[in-house]
Design a protein around this nucleic acid. Structure first.
Length: 968
RNA sequence: GCGGGUGUGGUGAAAUUGGUAUACACGCCAGAUUUAGGAUCUGGUGCCGCAAGGCGUGAAGGUUCGAGUCCUUUCACCCGCACCA
């Protein structure tokens, strides 16, 4: 029995594969537990050390639950549709289906090497037609439903048709794109096309012209969450706003329920806050301002109806539909110039500088409460998508309105007296109303209610709730996604493809480059022309497949339904969902939406998909930069020039002989491989950096003990770096490190394979868990892994003697040993439950240290420990379990039970404190009463010494805790 | 600006939720063993002090017999959102 991690790893990985140890059946006799990892997008870079953090954690929970007798569903799959694969395909000419398949295989191999106990028979792939058949079916159902606000749920579109046929829009309270009034008679007189357009106003998946994020470089529209700082998240290309005809999902209909549901799930506060923020609910009032010379009034939304007497102008968004109508001839030029200016500014410009700009339309509004005549402006700071795209401006009580009024010389009327609230800012909703007619003297909250009531009574407005969230643009003009299952009939009416005809598979295409807003599928004429009509050529975004994948794992091969009812009734929902925080908002929100929709249809039994969510912290890695020198600018300032290893590829400063991606140096590599004489910590203009000396490297080359081959190889390319010379004439280069995300583009990806190769998979798994709390971000560092390796050797050593023979004895365990064991069982069981894996591992170390000290080799103690450590170190546990004569796999063996009797203490060591400061400890029997302890403690000579010359004011005795003398 | 989070030894981090601060590990120091060590084992290791003792959880207050933990104020850093009416 040799401690040979590589052999043991291979042996058992093969065993698990052969025996399908981790296969999960839909065995309804056992309680279920569903542990889900966010499935990865299979990129070409493979797994890095950051990925496994969550996978290992969820795997440990899975294994513990399995041993505890649960039927555990723990699947894995691939989120294979999406832009990167397609972009890669365009760059390299490899078809996305080919590269995707290859990457999936690699991911699967790497995951198997980490001993993640997935049931691979249940694996899904979102780009597989057998899978996306059901993605199309679900989105098709969304299309076939509308949202009834009264019932608070989605209802079939046929019921809407019936309603319209009977009563028109009367009595209809539905989520809609725009207010619409249709009589039953008008409905009856409409053509199919016209009716279809009415229905489109209500469908939960609908097609409309709206402003969307258009990315020219990618040739497609993007969802809000795919845009960061005015650029595409993929590829970092500029994004502009553009009106386009697009499919969307009416997520706004579910805003309230998505918000309310957050109170019922176990997510972190931060995550819930992020979701609430994204939904962005705010309560206020709508108000109608008559426009001079126009029938229809201007509708605004405000959270401060109380300030309505302070309104001195109105502002509408430059894209507001009334702009051209309201503009007077005299203002025509000014408005046109302003619109041109706005059009010239990108999203990035808008976000970076917030200059006060705007233009007067020439039109006027009438304040419904005091009849004041106020001018209407257009300005960039009013957003077309929020509220009604129009505001009543109150310069006395709003920062932006104030700046605008000051710039354009508009009157400012104070309406809130804040003198009772020193330090209150404009934003605070406090103060007393002044200059406000019937509101005068009221406090703000009171005035808000009064003003809203007044508006309502006058029929000029009412209380209203507004959401920041916008409907989800669900069209992409790209190839590598699910085609929308829609066919347009001759008169242009969109028809859902029959379930029997699903999936609508992607046509094979040679060239699927996206050309400015026209889907590549437009060119597949054989495919998009059908006897029933023309196919929709837009595809769905990557979120389409990942919204519901957790349901497919329950029943992955079902051809009749996306999941069978009895199956989903058994598995219910995900008990623990583990994944990166980067998906915390959009992915979770969208899949909650789909889940709630399916709930409305009676297809799933729960209101929320994920009971508990764990976001693992990101593991960062250093990004290396090479210091090339100091540049002196004209003013004599010194500017260090750094070339990061990532930029080195494209840098105009050519670095010869430096192979791409070769400068992957992390701190520990340096510590481990570079003797101190070689490295000096310095700083270049306050940037911490390391200095590496050339002569030291040369010396190091002679040093056979050093395993720094690639470091030397890279650094020996001396001429490439422009070596600097210090005052002693020694040549050096300087490197800097910055912690950052592990990514292919920074060339700082650290691969788990290498670590496993050297220390074994179990050691890697335990080390990643030992790094710290799972939800905390941390830099990757390999220092410390030896400690875990040593622990595993010591653990192993309890079972074997120096000749590598099993030395486990049948001798009865002592009380102490049993206490050690059961303390450990209790701690590990509880901590796994709390997802505190790092403390589990210390507990194993503590117990092992105690048992080794007592030279314990007893089966009664060691055998349960093997079952206990199995989730953490699955290979070694398996080997030890077999050696002890265990039947089958240790991972299917029962989890050890705590026997409380071993944890009972005979005596307890009390800290004895004086005025709260601990001075000594004393042992008392566990059953001793407060009085006994107090009396005995007082009599103790050591205690008496501390009490000498002092009066005891009070004695506090907390049994099993401590004793405190309050003295004076 | 708004929202969320984090500040504890040289380092990663513990602390039964108000009860002996620094468990466990890395690193370092000393010793043993060894031809050698990126091996193994033993002991030590918060700071000041010769000691008695004192001081210590970003800072300042407060509540309490007792505070890393609760409250108030404040500082620093990280993440998310941001002209949201």
């Amino acid at each position: 029995m040799k401690f040979d991690v590589k052999t043991i790893d291979q042996k058992w990985q093969q065993y698990w594969k052969d025996h399908k140890t981790y296969r999960t059946t839909n065995d309804t006799t056992k309680p279920k537990y569903y542990v889900l990892d966010m499935f990865p997008y299979p990129s070409g870079a493979g797994l890095h050390v950051g990925h496994p953090l969550g996978y290992i954690a969820s795997d440990i929970v899975t294994r513990v639950k399995r041993q505890q007798g649960y039927n555990v569903l723990h699947p894995m799959g691939f989120d294979a549709f999406g832009l990167p694969a397609e972009q890669y395909a365009i760059d390299t000419g490899v078809h996305p289906s080919v590269s995707t398949e290859k990457n999936c295989r690699r991911y699967k191999e790497q995951m198997e090497a980490l001993a993640l106990s997935f049931d691979w028979d249940r694996a899904v792939n979102t780009s597989d037609p057998k899978y996306y058949k059901w993605t199309q079916w679900i989105i098709g159902q969304v299309f076939e439903h509308w949202y009834d606000n009264q019932a608070g749920k989605a209802r079939p579109i046929q019921e809407l048709r019936d309603h319209l046929a009977q009563r028109g829009t009367e009595g209809l309270d539905a989520a809609q794109s725009a207010p619409l009034e249709v009589t039953a008679a008008a409905w009856a007189g409409m053509t199919a096309k016209e009716q279809s357009e009415v229905l489109m106003n209500y469908r939960l998946a609908f097609r409309s012209v709206s402003y969307v994020n258009w990315c020219e470089a990618l040739g497609t529209v993007l969802a809000n969450d795919e845009v960061k700082d005015g650029r595409s998240e993929r590829g970092n290309h500029p994004v502009v706003q553009k009106p386009m005809l697009q499919w969307s999902l009416r997520i706004t209909a579910y805003a309230e329920r998505l918000l309310a549901g957050l109170d019922t799930v176990d997510y972190s506060d931060g995550l819930k806050a992020q979701q609430r923020n994204w939904i962005g609910r705010s309560t206020g009032a709508q108000a109608f301002f008559d426009i001079e010379g126009r029938e229809e009034p201007l509708e605004v939304f405000t959270t401060r109806p109380d300030t309505i007497f302070g309104v001195t102008f109105m502002v509408i968004a430059p894209e507001h539909e009334l702009v051209s109508e309201l503009t007077t001839p005299a203002q025509e030029k000014e408005i046109q110039d302003y619109l041109a200016y706005v059009g010239s500014r990108s999203e990035i410009d808008r976000q970076q500088e917030t200059k006060v700009t705007g233009a007067f339309t020439g039109a006027y509004c009438i304040n419904p409460l005091n009849g004041a005549r106020v001018p209407i402006y257009i300005a960039e700071y009013v957003l077309k998508d929020y509220g009604t795209g129009a505001i009543m401006a109150v310069p006395s009580d709003d920062e932006r309105d104030k700046r605008f009024a000051e710039k354009f010389g508009i009157e400012i009327i104070d309406v809130i007296d804040k003198s009772d609230y020193p330090g209150a800012t404009l934003k605070d909703k406090v103060g007393k109303l002044i200059n406000s007619d019937f509101l005068n003297g009221m406090e703000v909250p009171e005035a808000i209610v009064a003003a809203t009531e007044k508006l309502t009574a006058m029929g000029r407005g009412e209380q209203q709730v507004n959401y920041r969230i916008r409907d989800l643009v669900f069209s992409r003009q790209r190839y590598w996604g699910e085609p929308w299952p829609i066919i347009y009939s001759e008169d242009g009416v969109p028809q859902l493809v029959d379930t029997d005809s699903l999936p609508v598979t992607l046509p094979p295409m040679e060239d699927f480059r996206a050309v400015s807003g026209i889907s590549p599928l437009e060119r597949a004429t054989d495919w998009n022309q059908t006897p029933q009509g023309r196919r929709e050529t837009d595809t769905m975004p990557a979120t389409a497949g990942s919204n519901w994948y957790y349901l497919r794992y329950m029943d992955p091969t079902n051809d009749e339904e996306f999941v069978a009812k009895d199956v989903v009734d058994y598995w219910q929902d995900v008990d623990l969902y583990v994944g990166g925080a980067e998906h915390a908002v959009s992915h979770i929100l969208y899949s909650r939406l789909i889940h709630k929709f399916l709930f409305d249809l009676g297809k799933v039994p729960t209101r929320e998909p994920y009971k508990k969510l764990l976001n693992q912290g990101m593991i960062g890695a250093p990004i290396t930069s090479i210091h090339l020198g100091i540049m002196l600018s004209d003013d004599g300032q010194r500017h260090p020039i750094w070339v990061s290893s990532s930029l080195a590829e494209n840098s105009p400063l050519e670095i010869e002989g430096l192979g791409k991606g070769h400068l992957v140096l992390d701190e520990s590599t340096l510590e481990r491989n570079v003797p101190l004489r070689m490295v000096e910590e310095t700083s270049v203009n306050n940037e911490p950096s390391y200095r590496i000396y050339k002569d030291a490297i040369n010396a190091a080359q002679q040093d056979q003990a050093m395993d720094a081959a690639y470091l030397r190889t890279v650094l020996q390319q001396g001429s490439a770096f422009a070596w600097e010379t210090d005052k002693d004439g020694r040549q050096f280069i300087e490197l800097s490190y910055q912690m950052g995300k592990m990514s292919k583009r920074y060339h700082n990806v650290i691969n788990p394979d290498d670590i496993s190769e050297r220390y074994g998979t179990d050691c890697f798994r335990m080390y990643e868990m030992f790094l710290g709390p799972i939800d905390q971000a941390k830099p990757w560092s390999v220092s410390g892994i030896d400690g875990v390796y040593r622990f595993l050797r010591r653990f192993w050593g309890m079972f074997t003697n120096e000749q590598d023979e099993l030395q486990v004895t049948a001798a009865a365990a002592t009380k102490e040993e049993m206490k050690t064991l059961h303390t450990l069982i209790k701690k590990v069981t509880e901590d796994v439950d709390k997802l505190s894996f790092n403390t589990c591992i210390s507990a194993f170390m503590v117990a092992t240290n105690e048992l080794i000290k007592g030279k314990c080799h007893k089966r009664d103690v060691l055998e349960p420990m093997v079952r206990l450590i199995a989730p953490f170190a699955p290979h070694l546990a398996e080997e030890l379990f077999a050696a002890l004569g265990g039947e089958g796999s240790v991972h299917l063996s029962p989890w050890p039970e705590v026997e409380e009797k071993w944890l009972v203490e005979d005596s307890f060591t009390y800290p004895i404190a004086f005025n709260g400061k601990t001075r000594l400890t004393l042992d008392f029997p566990a059953g001793a009463s407060k009085e006994e302890i107090e009396a005995e403690a007082k009599d103790h000579p050591e205690v008496a010494k501390h009490l000498e010359g002092k009066t005891i004011r009070k004695v506090i005795v907390v049994p099993k805790r401590m004793v405190n003398f309050v003295v004076g």
